[in-house]
Design a protein around this nucleic acid. Structure first.
Lengths: 140, 140
DNA sequence: ATATGTGCAAATGGTTTGCAGGGCA
DNA sequence: TGCCCTGCAAACCATTTGCACATAT
């Protein structure tokens, strides 16, 4: 479901669709693909509702995380970044050429195995495999 | 290579083997399997060198990260946890109770599938599965 | 003598929270 | 009325840094 359409879900639920939350949604719709920080989203949201406060942005992001509409991307230094939630998504990152390739295909099998074996419910993933792609592997 | 033996590597390189760093190593040797925070390591290291400061623990951990002896485990809330660096390793992070559980068992199958299918060579991983453990799942 | 390492306390910076006010049900 | 939502500023807390002193090479 596209990000913007989730507004309806928000409205259908017990949550109010305030102008501030609309502004955050519009900001996300603009820049979510850039893996924005809360500050990035705040700056963009101001274009739609200039009086919005940073705390409101954080509170809205927290709400969207709870609703599984967004995922956090945790990085060693600096602030958390956000992306549209894919429940099960994985990247292969080539250490040779830097390409990032989606390798979702067999992730479900792995996640299912973990769920069945230990009784966990896997709701989202942060999976990066590092190594060398076919091209770079031959060159080594 | 076991964690403790890496002391030698540290000594062979340009780094000094101070009593403070020894204390951090001994602490890590004791509790690294528990995914400790810097505070956990600090508390344990005090048993070996009571005057050690928290800043020194952080500086030593940073050094060990650079040397690829440790890996950070980034979590949505709370402080960074540390583990011994492994090439293929995965965590399940419970969003209910915060527990971090190793789920390496089927990761190799997944990594191997990616390797065979696309001709990649997977050398290391950063894999976090988020969700709810059996206990927290029942409570929901 | 020079570089490296340390403890302490203060600073930093991302995030959260208390509070008083505002708006919708 | 009651509850949810907001902005602001202050608080919070993990981590980093400045500094003066210590230690190793």
């Amino acid at each position: 479901m596209p990000l913007v359409n989730r507004l309806k879900k928000l409205k259908d639920d017990k949550y109010q669709l305030t102008p501030q939350r609309q502004a955050v949604f519009q900001a996300l719709n603009d820049i979510i693909l850039e893996h924005p920080t809360a500050e990035d989203i705040y700056a963009r949201a101001k274009k739609y509702y200039s009086q919005i406060g940073l705390a409101t942005v954080y509170r809205t992001l927290e709400l969207l995380l709870e609703l599984q509409i967004l995922n956090p991307i945790l990085v060693p230094k600096g602030s958390t970044r956000y992306e549209a939630a894919h429940s099960r998504h994985a990247h292969f990152v080539c250490l040779g050429c830097g390409r990032i390739i989606d390798v979702d295909k067999h992730l479900n099998q792995y996640a299912n195995a973990v769920e069945q074996e230990a009784g966990f419910a896997v709701t989202s993933t942060s999976v990066q495999l590092f190594g060398y792609c076919a091209d770079c592997n031959h060159q080594q």
